[in-house]
């Protein structure tokens, strides 16, 4: 697993992709959190990080598919997939190597936003007056959300040799999980199914983690989604004709 992880990371850093992803993530979040009117922290006057945790998932929803789209699509297109899958390493370690590399890139983009947290701490009145539990819960939620998006992206990348198709498919599936289930449950309000449907989606679990309580049910939900999509990737790649 490690050689594949290392190679993918080297590839992010030796091409523009890695830097571009980090810069775009931070630029977009920075804009929405600090500069653009209506929603920014400074104007709101509250010592909270909510704008970041509202915008962050939407930025991830587009950026992660852009990172993961080439993982397997490109190997398929250049036929190196056959070479890779005839090396003496297990199928799962190839998939996990690529998965963790994409995940690491996402963590690197999220890491600098801790400065926002410090900023809000110091701007607070009194200083350090911030709901730390809620912020750390939200970080855990956002990282798990990103991890789930990454597994979806890896899966769609294994479906096609066309990177654009992989990107669009994975944005759609991420959107379905993050937002559509929530919207459907709104439509079904009062029928008794709404709670069930909204819990199928990620937004409900993300919101639950944001309250600052790390609930095992939410953890289990995200881990299951990741597990399901990575297993599906493995099945897709193992069944060759």
């Amino acid at each position: 697993m490690f050689p594949i992880f290392k190679k993918e990371i080297e590839r992010f850093l030796s091409s523009l992709t890695g830097y571009l992803v980090i810069v775009v993530f931070l630029a977009l979040n920075g804009l929405f959190v600090w500069i653009l009117p209506d929603n920014n922290i400074l104007d709101s006057g509250y010592s909270s990080m909510d704008p970041l945790f509202y915008v962050g998932p939407w930025v991830l929803l587009f950026l992660i598919p852009a990172v993961t789209m080439r993982t397997f699509s490109e190997e398929k297109k250049t036929r190196t997939l056959e070479w890779l899958f005839t090396r003496p390493v297990s199928d799962m370690s190839i998939i996990l190597g690529k998965y963790f590399a994409c995940l690491a890139l996402m963590l690197f983009s999220i890491l600098p936003t801790l400065i926002y947290f410090l900023t809000v701490c110091w701007l607070g009145s009194p200083v350090y007056n911030i709901d730390t539990a809620s912020v750390s819960g939200s970080y855990v939620g956002m990282i798990l959300l990103g991890a789930a998006f990454t597994s979806i992206g890896i899966f769609t990348s294994s479906l096609t040799e066309n990177q654009i198709v992989s990107f669009i498919l994975s944005v759609c599936i991420c959107f379905l999980f993050y937002s559509l289930f929530e919207i459907f449950s709104g439509l079904l309000a009062g029928t008794g199914y709404d709670y069930f449907i909204s819990n199928l989606g990620m937004a409900a679990h993300y919101a639950s983690l944001s309250r600052g309580v790390i609930d095992s049910r939410d953890l289990l939900y995200f881990i299951s989604v990741i597990f399901i999509f990575l297993s599906a990737t493995r099945m897709k790649l193992r069944i060759k004709n």
Partner: peptide, 26 residues
């Protein structure tokens, strides 16, 4: 194994590619 059409990673240097292959062989 040399597969049909000899697939290679075009964006790697020769040595980099061979080192990667050796790592995959453990």
């Amino acid at each position: 194994y040399l597969p049909e059409h000899n697939p290679l990673y075009d964006d790697l240097y020769i040595k980099e590619y061979l080192v990667y292959a050796s790592e995959l062989y453990g």
